Amino acid sequence: MAKLYFRYGAMNCGKSTAIMQVGYNYYERGMNAVIMKPMVDTKGDNKVVSRLGIDKPVDFLVGNDDDVFEMIDLYQKENKKIDCLLVDEVQFFRSYHIDQMLKVAVTLNIPVICYGLRTDFLMNGFEGSQRLLLIAHTIEELKTICTCGRKATLNGRKVNGKYVFEGEQVAIDGENHVEYQSLCTSCYFEYRGE
């Protein structure tokens, strides 16, 4: 039986780069790995974009009303076998999408490797990430460092270069003067004034 994986980390830990690397590894072995991301992630439009300056078109853009299981099942019937489903920005998916991804792994025997954030800029969980923490077969942390050199586990949101601690949960990096910084807990509380 294939597994549902959740690989999470703070901003700038290399999640999108890892997706492209894993996809290439499958390609190099003559296998078919497909990439999926949610429509709400408008960064790069229909591409996975890495801070290293590389990008890759996705095979599936998923909206709230889409059924991930049906999309993958239909693709295999109309195209070719999928050897791995790679999911970028998984935190933005709904709980029912995560359940559908589990069904893809278990019923269709396709490994589903999800990459995303565990928490938002206010230390709250994302719906997709919370569901994955409950049902994923394997959970792995991708590590990165804070500007102070300590392990970063949190995400700071900057607007016009200043840290903010209020606002909507979803604001896409690079849009409307928004940028994110991976932070250790100490620096996070310092910037928050605590």
Rank of each mutant, 00 (worst) to 15 (best):
A2Q: 03
Y8V: 00
M11P: 04
N12H: 12
K15Y: 04
S16C: 05
S16L: 04
T17A: 11
Q21R: 14
G23M: 08
Y26M: 12
M31E: 15
A33F: 04
M36A: 12
P38I: 07
T42M: 13
N46K: 15
V49P: 00
S50D: 06
R51I: 01
R51D: 01
L52P: 02
F60D: 00
G63D: 11
G63P: 11
I72A: 00
N79F: 15
K81N: 13
D83H: 15
C84I: 07
L85Y: 12
L86R: 03
Q91R: 05
Q91M: 06
F93Y: 15
I98D: 09
D99K: 15
M101D: 06
V104H: 03
V104Y: 04
N109S: 10
L117I: 03
T119G: 00
D120H: 08
L132K: 02
I135H: 08
I135Y: 06
A136I: 05
K143Y: 12
T147N: 03
R150K: 14
T153D: 11
K158A: 00
K158V: 00
V159H: 06
A171I: 08
I172Q: 01
G174H: 10
N176E: 14
H177R: 11
V178I: 15
Y180L: 05
C184L: 07
S186I: 15
Y191A: 03
G193H: 09
G193I: 06
E194Q: 10
